[in-house]
Design a protein around this nucleic acid. Structure first.
Length: 274
DNA sequence: CGGGCGGCCTGGAGGC
DNA sequence: TGCCTCCAGGCCGCCC
C-alpha cells in the first residue's frame, strides 16, 4: 500500500489528533510481523507516556513520545494505522493497539504482516537499525539531479531499480517509480549509467513533483490505503501509467505496456519514454 | 560492491 | 459454487 505520499498523508492526519494524548496501555494479539514485536520493550517505551509529535522518515512513521522515546511504525504492504473509538469491535488482523485514555485506541491492522512496530530512544534514532543507511528524502534539500547522477553513474541496472533503491533516495516505491519515469519521459528499462545528466535532473524533479501531487490528493488508494481517520486517497485517478496496461497514454496517445523489472510490474509508454 | 533472486504473509481477482 | 493459480503498494538476506 504505502509509499512516501501515503505515509506522509497518514502522518498529517494523525498529527491532528494524537499529540497530547497519553498511551494508557498496549494490547498485542499477534507478535509475528516483519519482525517479532518485543512486547516488553514496547510497553516500557510507550505506556504512561504522552504523544508529542509525529515525524516521517522514508516510509517510517516516527511517533515521538515524552521521555525521549520514539515509536517506529512501518505499514509494509497492507498495514493500516487508525484512531477508532474504544468501543469499536476488534477487526480481523488487528494485531496491536495502543489505548488512548479510555475513549479511543490507535489500531494497527496488517493482514499480510509485512509491517513493523518498534521503539528506540529519540536521541539515538540516527543509529536505529532500520533508519541508519537510508538515503536522502526526495522532498528535502539534499536530493537533486546531481545527487541522482552520482548514484546512476556507477550503476548499469535499469533506472527504475536505482530510483527504488532506498540508499539512493527513499520513499519511491513501485507505483511512483513508474509514474515519475513517465513524467520525465525516460524508459524504465534504460541502464542508469546511460542517461544524460540533464535527463536525470528532469527525473529528480519528476520524482519530487509526482510525490507532492500525490500527497496533495491524499495518497493513492488502489485497494486499501486510508489515512488515520479511515479516509481513502484520490491520486489513483491521476495515475498516468501504473496498472494501465493496454490503455492510452495521456500525453502522446501511445499504448501503455507492462514489463517486469526486478520481479515487479512496471508500466511505461513506449511512445514517449526513451 | 553491484546485481539477481527467493522468501516473508494473506486476500482478492480471474480462469475453469 | 468451488478450487486453483496468479498477483499485490515493501523489504531483507543470500548467492554469485
Amino acid at each position: 500500500m504505502p509509499e512516501l505520499p501515503e505515509v506522509e498523508v497518514l502522518r498529517r492526519s494523525l498529527d491532528r489528533v494524537l499529540p497530547g494524548r497519553r498511551i494508557e496501555g498496549v494490547v498485542v494479539r499477534e507478535t509475528r510481523l516483519r519482525e517479532v514485536v518485543d512486547v516488553t520493550a514496547l510497553a516500557a517505551a510507550t505506556v504512561g507516556r504522552t504523544i508529542e509529535r509525529l515525524e516521517r522518515r522514508a516510509k517510517y512513521l516516527l511517533i515521538h513520545l515524552e521521555g525521549s522515546s520514539t515509536l517506529l511504525v512501518h505499514l509494509g504492504m497492507s498495514g493500516r494505522l487508525t484512531v477508532v473509538p474504544a468501543e469499536e469491535p476488534l477487526e480481523a488482523h488487528e494485531h496491536l493497539a495502543f489505548l488512548l485514555g479510555s475513549t479511543h485506541r490507535l489500531r494497527f491492522r496488517d493482514p499480510r504482516r509485512f509491517g513493523l512496530i518498534a521503539s528506540w530512544p529519540t536521541g539515538r534514532l540516527a543509529s536505529e537499525p532500520h533508519l541508519a543507511g537510508l538515503g536522502p528524502e526526495p522532498l528535502g534539500a539534499d536530493f537533486d539531479g546531481q545527487r541522482l547522477a552520482r548514484a546512476a553513474r556507477r550503476r548499469r541496472a535499469a533506472i527504475k531499480l536505482v530510483v527504488m533503491d532506498p540508499t539512493v533516495v527513499v520513499g519511491v516505491g513501485n507505483i511512483y517509480a513508474s509514474e515519475a519515469l513517465h513524467r520525465a519521459g525516460i524508459d524504465p528499462r534504460r541502464p542508469a549509467n546511460r542517461i544524460a545528466a540533464a535527463r536525470l535532473e528532469r527525473l529528480a524533479e519528476a520524482i519530487r513533483s509526482t510525490l507532492e501531487a500525490a500527497i496533495e490528493q491524499g495518497g493513492t488508494t488502489l485497494s486499501d490505503f486510508a489515512d488515520g481517520a479511515g479516509n481513502a486517497g484520490y491520486f489513483q485517478v491521476a495515475l498516468a501509467v501504473y496498472d494501465r496496461d493496454g490503455e492510452t497514454c495521456p500525453r502522446c496517445g501511445g499504448t501503455i505496456r507492462r514489463v517486469i523489472l526486478g520481479q515487479r510490474s512496471t508500466y511505461y509508454c513506449p511512445g514517449c519514454q526513451r
